[in-house]
Structures are given as C-alpha cells and as structure tokens.
C-alpha cells in the first residue's frame, strides 16, 4: 500500500464527519482510506488531456421548475420522523452558548 494514513488524519476526518471511532475502527478506516487513495493514484495514470470534468452522471442540463407553490402543510407527517418535538418544532440539544 503506497498511501499510509496518519492517526491525525483519521482523527481530523472523524471530527469533520462527527464520528467517534474505536481504536479498531480507526485502524480499519486507515486501511480503507489508504486503499481509496491508491485507487485514485491508479486513475491518475489515465491520460485525461482535453476531457472535461464530470459533475453529473446523466447528460442532462437545465432541469428547472416554475416558481409555483405545489406543497401544502405536511408538518405532521414530517415531524413523525423526529425522535422529539415541541410546539410543532424539532428539538435538538442546546446550541446556544
């Protein structure tokens, strides 16, 4: 494996993804990420001169809708997914300092 991922990198990526990983999981993630980067290196060997970057898998453009209200009140159905609600709102752990 050409790429070795440091513990710091795993720690950093974990924080960004809001994941808490056990030491075993970190080890596994390090190996997986190393392999991914190896694969990217392999892709880099291809000659992509003059090839436009692809940002969408389908060759469609300009998919748009008109500015017309089509949705009504679906609050009840949407809140049904929430573990907790209050006064028609989702609740979350406090975010204010």
């Amino acid at each position: 494996m050409a790429h070795s991922i440091t513990d710091e990198t795993i720690e950093y990526v974990g924080i960004l993804a809001q994941l808490e990983l056990s030491p075993e999981e970190k080890k596994q993630a390090r190996q997986d990420m190393g392999r991914m980067l190896d694969y990217i290196d392999q892709l880099k060997e291809l000659d992509t001169e003059g090839v436009e970057p692809l940002s969408h898998v389908l060759s469609v453009e300009n998919v748009m809708r008109e500015d017309v209200v089509t949705n009504g009140d679906m609050r009840e159905a949407l809140l049904a997914n929430a573990p907790e609600e209050k006064d028609g709102m989702f609740t979350a752990p406090r975010t204010f300092g």
């Binding site: 989702f90 609740t91 979350a92 406090r94 975010t95």
Partner: peptide
C-alpha cells in the same frame, strides 16, 4: 431558524 427554549434548555428548530 433555531429558537432557544429556556424552559427545557434545548433548541427548537423551524425549517
């Protein structure tokens, strides 16, 4: 929009 609920000390969310 986040609203601080002082009663329950949690954050309420209106999307």
């Amino acid at each position: 929009k986040l609203i601080h609920d002082t009663w329950e000390d949690c954050t309420l969310i209106d999307y």
